[in-house]
Each structure stands twice: as structure tokens, then as C-alpha cells.
Design a protein around this nucleic acid. Structure first.
Length: 236
DNA sequence: ATTGGGGTTCATGTGATGCG
DNA sequence: CGCATCACATGAACCCCAAT
């Protein structure tokens, strides 16, 4: 392993997380992980005034990282309590990538490469939670697919090739939603490919560039000629 | 040296709540 | 109901630090 990454996770991301958590805002988030707290309690815990806490809590609330949970009875007016929003816990998770890395290793050793690839394809199809309307134009289905990929964290653009209704599309991903694990397990690209095929109701062929830190993918999407499920052979 | 941004404190005002 | 107290919001000013 190079000095630029650890467990498939770029060191820059770990540094970014460390910077976040050592800032006042990060410390507020950290305190809210263990229990609901009022502004006053947070101020005491961090050794600052309540007014220093409030702008941060408000910003975190606007960003959806923190939620109001209720009011704690005080001597007079009850104090609002805050808690960490459910999704915010993901900011602290260091475990998903190493876990998935080991899981794929174990599955590969147990099932063999072909069966593992089948599992990955099935997983990709299941991620296509709501397949596009098959009567809709391919362009609309590709748009819906890209919207889902963006929801998963990808940065995607669509390029149209060819003219008329039989044209093909290429989805260019400058940031893969599964980048951290793709660098360790290239076969995960099959999940993206299957997701796109299922979601768009079309034929999909993914080509992944794994040069440098950020994998880029190019997924060619073309009209499906028959009801046969696309299943391209892969060298891995 | 200057500049800009982030973070904090202080002062002040508003609204909610409990008590007499 | 009026007052006192407390939580909260807002704006101005200051400090620190990194970038230029």
C-alpha cells in the first residue's frame, strides 16, 4: 500500500475529518454523538460562551446534521435540546470500506470469481430501487439513472452519441460513488453496470479508469435489442 | 504588510415561563 | 396580571491565522 491511502481511504479524507472534528463545530457534533445536549451544556463542555455555540448549532441544523429533540425543563424557560441527525453518524464511520473489502475477499474465496460477480451484479440491480418507466424515452431513463447515481454520491455527466431515437448515451463519472472500494475491488464496477442497465432498462457497458486517486468511469448506455439481460464478460 | 475568513465575546433585545 | 428570570437571537467588534 502506498503512503497516500489507508484501508482504501485517502489520507486526505482522514485529514479532512480530523480537521472537522477538532474545530468547534466538530466538537459540538462529537458531544452530540453521546447524548442530547442544550446550548448551555455544549458551551460548558467546550469552555466557551453560549453565544459562541449558537451560530454553529444553527449552521449544523441548516445543514441537516443536527436536530432539535425537545426541551429540557429548566428553572424558567425550558432549554432546547439537540441531537445528531441520523445520517450524520456516517461522517464518523471509518469501518464500511474495510468491512466491505474483507467481505468481498471472503466471498471471493468461498464462492469463486464467477459467483461473486453474479452476487455483485445482483446487488447492483437491487440498488436500482425504482427502475425507470420502460415506455419513457431512453434519454429520460438515462437522466433518471444519473439522478440515482448522484444520490449515491457520484458526479456524473451525460453525453449523447448518434442521432434520433436509436442514439446511445455515455455517462461520464468524474467521481465514482463507490470509489474507495473500486480501487480495492475493480469487480465492483459490475454493480454500477448492472444498476444502470436495470434502472435505464437498457444495455450498459462500463469502462473504468483507475488511474490516480479518483477512479473515473464511462458507462455506455444503448437501447436493449431484446429481453436478454446484458452480461458482458470481464477479465477479472 | 495587508487582507479575508473563521471564531469568539459582548451588549442588547425579544419571547417564554414561573411565581406572587 | 405584572414582574423577574432565563433561553435565545442578532449585530458589532475584536482576535487569530493563513494566504497573498
Amino acid at each position: 500500500m502506498s503512503g497516500t491511502e489507508r484501508d482504501g481511504r485517502p489520507v486526505a479524507l482522514t485529514r479532512w475529518r480530523k480537521a472537522l472534528l477538532t474545530s468547534t463545530r466538530g466538537q459540538i457534533i462529537d458531544r452530540l454523538r453521546s447524548a442530547d445536549r442544550t446550548v448551555e451544556e455544549l458551551a460548558t463542555a467546550l469552555g466557551v460562551t453560549d453565544n459562541a455555540i449558537r451560530p454553529h448549532v444553527q449552521q449544523l441544523e441548516r445543514q441537516g446534521l443536527v436536530l432539535r429533540t425537545g426541551a429540557r425543563p429548566g428553572a424558567r424557560r425550558p432549554a432546547v435540546t439537540y441531537k445528531l441527525a441520523p445520517g450524520a453518524e456516517l461522517l464518523f464511520s471509518e469501518g464500511y470500506v474495510p468491512f466491505l473489502d474483507q467481505l468481498l475477499d471472503v466471498l471471493g474465496g468461498t464462492l469463486g470469481r464467477d459467483d461473486l460477480n453474479d452476487v455483485i451484479r445482483t446487488t447492483g440491480r437491487r440498488l436500482a430501487a425504482r427502475p425507470a418507466d420502460r415506455d419513457a424515452p431512453l434519454a429520460a431513463r438515462v437522466q433518471a439513472t444519473v439522478a440515482l447515481l448522484k444520490e449515491l454520491g457520484g458526479v456524473m455527466e451525460i453525453e449523447k452519441r448518434g442521432n434520433g431515437g436509436n442514439g446511445t448515451y455515455v455517462i461520464h463519472g468524474s467521481s465514482c460513488p463507490f470509489a474507495a472500494i473500486v480501487r480495492l475491488h475493480p469487480e465492483v464496477c459490475l454493480a454500477i453496470e448492472s444498476l444502470v442497465a436495470e434502472m435505464a432498462g437498457a444495455r450498459a457497458h462500463a469502462r473504468c479508469e483507475r488511474l490516480g486517486d479518483a477512479p473515473r468511469c464511462h458507462i455506455e448506455v444503448s437501447p436493449r435489442p431484446s429481453r436478454n439481460r446484458p452480461r458482458a464478460a470481464r477479465p477479472w
